[in-house]
Design a protein around this nucleic acid. Structure first.
Lengths: 150, 150
DNA sequence: TATATTAAGGTCAAAGAAAGTCAAAACGAA
DNA sequence: TTCGTTTTGACTTTCTTTGACCTTAATATA
């Protein structure tokens, strides 16, 4: 029974029962659990992933924070399902297919679809060899962004 | 969450809601926020740049002032103008500035802005050295897509 | 008129305040 | 023991805040 990570996970999940969105101070939280600050990152990156239904955004520097948001994560949410299905690489063809599917299901409108297509366009991502990798990341990032509201 | 710089930014933006042109006294403003005068310069130079859609002029000496002006946006050309300002490389900060400008001018809605931000996010474009180059291309590609609708 | 004083604003680098990364060490279960 | 998971700590990156020093303009004074 690995206590620390589980406690931190539980602690955050309890906070999230109040609201779908919670702001943390990494150092403060680390101090509360008397652990290294990077322990917080570990917990977030292993238990609060997109697959788990969470999105994390953060800001460094003075006034920095970490915000954990819960997103709709279920089989019925096409955005989430597709975002999770993206692996390390994504061809332009696959990306187009995903976008048209979202368009058909009215999760995107024409304009948004055009925007996304243009972002993962081969011409915009010129470097050979890395193209599919970068496309995968961008696509995942965009789908995650869309998840952050509905 | 709210940091000194953010408050100052908000304060100035509220002033600008009355008029597209606002005159400030640097020292007075600094005193109001109980901070170093150069803090005002910091806020202006990080949040009121040309990319953001603002122009600053100032005068030193007795009777000096800082004037912040909202640049009149030629709605039809704004996309084009911004696209032209992208060179071979684009930092994340510059990209954000451009997107927030388009948002403020209502050429993008929140969702589209989030989509674009996510597409040019540093986490999505991890390759060191090439990041700003690729970001420039993606950004241009997206702006072009927006230009091409009907 | 020439100069000194005062009243602005500008610049830049250093310090401070967060969060992120990564790899090594420690731990625990099979 | 071995292998995957946790935990830690040193180092990095990003963003903010401050302060010392510089430049410019207006005004007062010799």
């Amino acid at each position: 029974m690995s206590v620390l990570s589980d406690s931190i996970e539980l602690f955050i999940k309890e906070l999230m029962e109040q609201s779908d969105e919670v702001s943390l101070q990494r150092n403060e939280l680390a101090q509360h659990f008397a652990c290294a600050p990077s322990q917080i990152n570990y917990v977030l990156s292993t238990r609060f992933t997109l697959e788990h239904g969470y999105v994390i955004i953060s800001r460094r520097g003075g006034g920095g924070y970490i915000r954990v948001m819960r997103v709709a994560a279920d089989r019925d949410n096409l955005l989430h399902v597709i975002a999770c299905r993206i692996g390390d690489a994504l061809s332009q063809h696959e990306a187009h297919a995903m976008i048209s599917r979202l368009l058909e299901d009215k999760i995107l409108n024409e304009r948004e679809a055009r925007l996304m297509v243009s972002a993962v366009d081969g011409c915009a991502l010129p470097m050979q060899g890395l193209q599919d990798t970068v496309r995968a990341r961008i696509m995942r990032s965009m789908l995650t962004a869309l998840l952050q509201e509905d």
